[in-house]
């Protein structure tokens, strides 16, 4: 294909310059086309299942339902501008839900990433034994589907059924893991249990990629294991920590599975416990526009928080 068009271009090019360029363009475009084919497998689903739904949610959030002819009269969607967004920001349930997941994140993310960093450093240390076994063992919880994990923990927390609770009751008194004051932290424990291994693996991979010469140098300079970890390894895997933090912030704001599962066994989870649950409940009662507005606000908040964190750490990196 490309050969004839190329010769065409040369032949016409010998005459006038301007038309020659016009003639060459289709030929060159055909030559360039392969990149497009390689992109398609990504682009098509990305547009269909990512950009379009998001665009549609934004579009839908700008409408409201109007009804004429009494209670069961005709209904139609009319443009309402940002009215749904005004409702979102005025919504007490939403505000409480956001505050709840933020509180959850502020406590849970540092604890989880601290544990992940610690286990990664331990696995990476020269004295560690059975490295492969522990690497898999730490990672296994991540392989368990979220609903199953939440169910399992719900049973372990249950005041009536849990062997742990009854054991604690035998030796003294057991806390009410599913009570109103502890249940959020019981959920935090489930997510920590699930995702520590996953984050550990990312940090561990970053540690493994570090050049060995640095550690030889530090050994020669007389640095021990702990000193090497604190002064050399942690600063060098800082980008991996930033990445896992961003993932965790996103995951925290989308908290859904644990509270929904716990709802079946505890009396302390409301329908708007997290913003995601609220959006789900509102959609289930056919208020799509409000649900869309809730989702868009949540997405924007997630975007601002995660990119805000990235910018913050990058600036800090430059300052160093």
């Amino acid at each position: 294909m490309s050969t004839p068009s190329a010769t065409d271009a040369i032949e016409t090019g010998s005459g006038d310059r301007t038309p020659a360029r016009l003639e060459t363009d289709p030929g060159k475009a055909r030559q360039r086309r392969p990149w497009l084919w390689f992109l398609l497998p990504f682009l098509v689903p990305f547009v269909l299942f990512y950009l379009l739904p998001i665009g549609y949610a934004v579009y839908q959030s700008l409408f409201k339902i109007q009804r004429t002819g009494g209670l069961f009269g005709k209904s139609e969607q009319v443009f309402a501008g940002f009215a749904q967004y005004a409702d979102v920001f005025a919504d007490e349930t939403f505000r409480q839900g956001v505050l709840r997941v933020l509180l959850f994140g502020i406590v849970q993310v540092p604890v989880m990433l601290g544990l992940a960093l610690l286990t990664a450093l331990l696995l990476d240390s020269a004295v560690a034994r059975l490295k492969r076994f522990f690497r898999i063992a730490f990672f296994v919880p991540y392989g368990i589907p979220g609903v199953i994990a939440a169910l399992m923990w719900a049973f372990l927390y249950s005041p009536q059924l849990s062997p742990i609770v009854s054991l604690l009751n035998d030796v003294g008194t057991a806390p009410d893991f599913l009570g109103s004051s502890l249940i959020l932290w019981s959920m935090a424990n489930v997510t920590t249990w699930t995702y520590t291994g996953y984050n550990m693996l990312i940090i561990f991979a970053a540690l493994q990629a570090l050049p060995q010469e640095i550690f030889e140098a530090s050994r020669i300079d007389g640095a021990g294991g702990v000193r090497t970890a604190v002064s050399i390894k942690i600063p060098l895997v800082f980008p991996a920590l930033v990445l896992t933090t961003v993932f965790s912030i996103i995951g925290t704001l989308q908290l859904f599975t644990e509270p929904v599962v716990f709802q079946t066994i505890s009396t302390n989870v409301t329908s708007g416990y997290t913003p995601n649950m609220q959006a789900y409940a509102v959609a289930a009662s056919n208020n799509y526009s409000f649900s869309a507005a809730l989702s868009v606000v949540l997405a924007v908040a997630t975007f601002i928080l995660s990119f805000g964190f990235l910018r913050f750490t990058q600036r800090r990196g430059e300052a160093l």
Binding site: S75, A283, Y288
Partner: peptide, 23 residues
């Protein structure tokens, strides 16, 4: 189902659901 909700309602939301079928 949430995904289905998004895609299936796209055509009908702005008019036909309420008005046409309702009548």
């Amino acid at each position: 189902m949430l995904a289905a909700a998004c895609s299936s309602s796209s055509g009908s939301d702005s008019g036909s659901t309420g008005a046409g079928a309702g009548a």
